[in-house]
Design a protein around this nucleic acid. Sequence first.
DNA 1: CTCATTCATTTGTATATACAAACATTAAAA
DNA 2: TTTTAATGTTTGTATATACAAATGAATGAG
Lengths: 140, 140
Amino acid sequence: MKTSGSRFGKCLYFTSNALARKVEKLAQECWKPLGLSPSHAYLLMAVLEEPGLQPTQLAGELQLQPSTITRLIEKLEEQKLVQRTTEGKLTNVYPTPKAKQLFPKMQACQQDFYTRYVAIVGQDISTQLVQDMSQVADKL
Amino acid sequence: MKTSGSRFGKCLYFTSNALARKVEKLAQECWKPLGLSPSHAYLLMAVLEEPGLQPTQLAGELQLQPSTITRLIEKLEEQKLVQRTTEGKLTNVYPTPKAKQLFPKMQACQQDFYTRYVAIVGQDISTQLVQDMSQVADKL
DNA sequence: CTCATTCATTTGTATATACAAACATTAAAA
DNA sequence: TTTTAATGTTTGTATATACAAATGAATGAG
């Protein structure tokens, strides 16, 4: 059944979740070649772009809870993709050389993801949708 | 930080997930008085509207995997809100009298949820957004 | 200076969802 | 008619995320 065909097709809860799950799936496919889940990938991208970012800042960037950020970092640390340094109560997260080497491939995955969804839903619609969702998310 | 302010604010993966989490949170609040999570509530609503629905059909309506439906039903069964009957390889899910009694309150919760988000984001925008998300979800 | 408060991070635990495999049943093919 | 394939459901297990509490460090009021 299609999302729009469901008896809940006009409900914000239902549609936003359904869409997010489908997008998540596409993103997972795109990042699979690097062995990263989308959220790990996005966190790592952020740290590559701005080395030393702290968990609280990452929580803001990724709109996730700090505890979730800790969990993501732990896994990236196991994979030797980031390293944490602690000073006082603050923690800084840095990309490792291995992560830096990976950077171009990560950009390619991101591009691939973008290209794929634009191919499916169209550039104008997707740009508009992202903007609207972002605006509504900000209000909630 | 706001969703739109993030370095990922223009990414479909990021915004659709951020939005879904915020909507989920609002929905949880609305359904909390009945002790139901939104997904349990929606499944139960479907079964109240159409008693005897089967897991596969519910999976279609709710856009969730059959295994997830099984898990949701199990919990609703524990709470004596639905009952399963099995004939051959098919399963039918029926609401209990307890669930039927609850129906008006559930409709009120649903209304409350709708009223709240419309109050926050506006009727026109939310209607438009739901329609767009639904359309894009169908294509993915 | 010290103690209470606040802040950043982590830990323990819980929920939501999925995937893959296992069953059980029906349908199709030989 | 027996075997094979397809279908609907459930089970085992894994991932993503969150909340609440614990920890450790900085700050400010007295």
